[in-house]
Design a protein around this nucleic acid. Sequence first.
DNA 1: GCCGTTTTCGGCCCGACTGTTTTCAGTCG
Length: 581
Amino acid sequence: MTREDAATIFERIALLLELKGENTFKVRAYRTGAEIVESFSGDIMQMAAENQLAGIKGLGEALRDKLHEMATTGKLEFYEKLKAEFPDTLFDLFDVPGLGPKKVAALHIELGVSSIADLKRACESGEAAKLSGFGGKTVEKILDGIAFREQHAAEFRQDQVHALAQEILEALRQHPHVSHAEVCGSFRRGKETVHDLDFLVSTKHPEEVIDSFVQLPIVVDVIAKGPTKASVHATHGVQCDLRAVSRKEFPFALVYFTGSKEHNVVIRQRALARGWSLNEYAFTPVPDHADAPVIPPVHDEAELYRALDLDFIDPELRENKGEIEAAEHGGLPHLVQLENLRGVFHNHTTASDGGATLREMAHAAHELGLQYLGIADHSKSSFQANGLNEQRLLAQIEEIQALNEEMKEEGFRIFTGSEVDILKDGSLDFSDEIMSRLDYVVASVHNVFNLPEAEMTKRIIRAIENPNVTMLGHLTGRLLLQRPAYNVNIAAVIDAAAETGTIIELNASAWRLDMDWRWWKLAKEKGVKCSINPDAHSTHGLQAVIYGIKAARKGWLTRKDIINCLPLGQIEEALRAKRAR
DNA sequence: GCCGTTTTCGGCCCGACTGTTTTCAGTCG
């Protein structure tokens, strides 16, 4: 059992206890437990198995025992019994915005609602609206929520499929008959969500490779299986497809299955213009095309593009959004790579809602090979996140200064910052006097999401007009597959950022990836700088930069567009630039 | 269920917003 599984079980226990009307503090204890398990620095499951969990704040005797049971037996008796009292599909109801434990309980007990389908029926029949505490607006909101959910059915965020993709790829590459293996599709293109994983191998023995693919331990059930192709459901219900081709076909299949469809259409048209037809296996001469040039040999993707007089196009750019035109005349950007990052901003510690201490975060960042770490804990208005007031912030600054002294010899630096709430009217949660004492400020919206677009836009622009606001956090507040972006005029905010010299964050959390990749090309053209921010709430959370890098690449960004590619010695000036204007 | 301790049980994080109410419960961050 992995830590994620254990955390999920604690989370579900919390939900079920809430449903049963248990003491809210007991519920909270399980929820806190889930967070601790999720973000603990160290192998918590191994420690649980060895009864080495004593002394961790928030994990008392009861939760320690339960963790031990899960780590050693792979299940939890307490949870199994609790779970048996309710249908499995009931959990889905909590994903609908506006539905919490009380409303779910009422729906379940009074109307026998157990699934999304039941819920939809109860809303449409008018039954739900009759329940105490329910009304027309509530039902409307629920139906909207169901529709949003259906739109995103069977989609997954990158954090949900990343490890799985790597695991399958590794298994395929280790197969003795596989010469090349790649993940294709939207995963390879770095999309923020994917609906399946497409794998491609080159082999002389396709049937043997397919056979071993459908027998991988992560396979839950086999949907289809033929001599060169198979589809399976893997862990968490992710559909995984495998195609096997020959070595010669591989580059063609790789382009074909990487897509996007729109990109491929243009590529095929381009081939046709030369008198060649292009499919997933080869270029073939079009009959009766008199002056078709000779088809050159193609051993890899770069040669395929070259054959069409194009520079190699990175998979992330293959969306038919100008990449083909740019590839014609050497206009493609040299995309940023993970290795270019020198530090990270916007990280939390135990001072607010993070799971790791300042020291743990600093050492983890140093260990990752970074030169600096920016701390930006929540400000006082974010009560739910234990936001810092002025006094606690000043104390943290001192703590950081002391730790900086200690780590100076290692060439590592911590920058003092804060994630300051943008209040409803666009004013900020800290005074200019306090903010000016920080190395940098991230300003973010954390409440009142439902303003009309004009008002929200005005609110955000007012905030970034403050010279102390170094960068703007998660511009739209979206949570992928869960909550849509709030209404805001992104183009207007980009303009204001350009005008005021404000950096815009690319929040790298797999839940956010906000600002969206589709806007970065425009931002870059306007001269707005990007900061790839992991928004880490634990040492593990720092790893989110891998998702941020993908999104940045998808947004045509190079290391020159991203301030945290600047090394120590240059980054300081970049942080000061706006105040100096 | 956890914590801290005044070692045996009381307190635990706060506020805005929404929609349904007629003074507030539920949800969310």
